[in-house]
């Protein structure tokens, strides 16, 4: 610059007419900077921009995939849920049917048991009645014989006839009783 100023001061050249070294010192920086941007800076910049947009597009694609997957999963889930509901309904229905069957069976068993118990009880009652009847017959017979012995003043105990008499009397009593029923 200083050199240029000195020359300018000495020669007072037209500022619109460039000196040769001015052109040379202009071309060199121009070419240097052109080369810099052309071969180094702009390719790097372009690479970064491409990478960035690729990353963004990749991200969008990834998001779309994820969304599709989520949707599929949701559908699957809903299907499973519906299946599970149907299954549950079926099980419930089955359980109701089974429950009815079990109830009926239990009722049947219970009534059978009741019938059995009733029958046993009747048999027992019958048996006890028979036993009571036999005992009663024996006691009533001996009581009657004692009473009769007392009345007639002699023992009728060993008499076979007396036994036959009592039996006949009781038989008569039974028949009259049956007739009365």
């Amino acid at each position: 610059m200083l050199e240029a100023l000195i020359i300018a001061a000495e020669e007072k050249p037209n500022p619109l007419l460039p000196a040769w070294y001015d052109i040379v010192y202009s071309i060199i920086p121009f070419l240097l900077v052109l080369l810099l941007f052309w071969k180094v800076v702009l390719p790097r910049m372009q690479a970064t921009l491409d990478e960035r947009s690729a990353r963004i597009e990749g991200g969008i694609k990834q998001a779309e995939t994820a969304q599709a997957e989520a949707k599929a999963a949701l559908e699957e889930y809903n299907k499973l849920l519906a299946e599970a509901r149907a299954e549950a309904a079926k099980i419930r229905e089955q359980a109701r049917v089974d429950g009815g069957a079990i109830l009926a069976e239990l009722k049947e068993q219970a009534s059978a048991e009741a019938a059995r118990i009733t029958a046993t009880a009747q048999q027992q009652i019958e048996a006890e009645r028979q036993a009571a009847l036999v005992t009663l017959r024996a006691e009533v017979g001996s009581l009657a014989l004692d009473l009769a012995s007392g009345v007639i003043g002699e023992s009728l105990a060993d008499d076979a006839r007396a036994t036959a008499l009592v039996d006949r009397f009781l038989a008569d009593l039974e028949t009259s009783e049956k007739a009365a029923k």
Partner: peptide
Amino acid sequence: MLVRLVIVALLVLVFWLGTRNMKL
């Protein structure tokens, strides 16, 4: 005239360093 070369060196430096290690 030397100024131009100095400034060009500065420019080269700035953009070289600025794009040397590009990050997203």
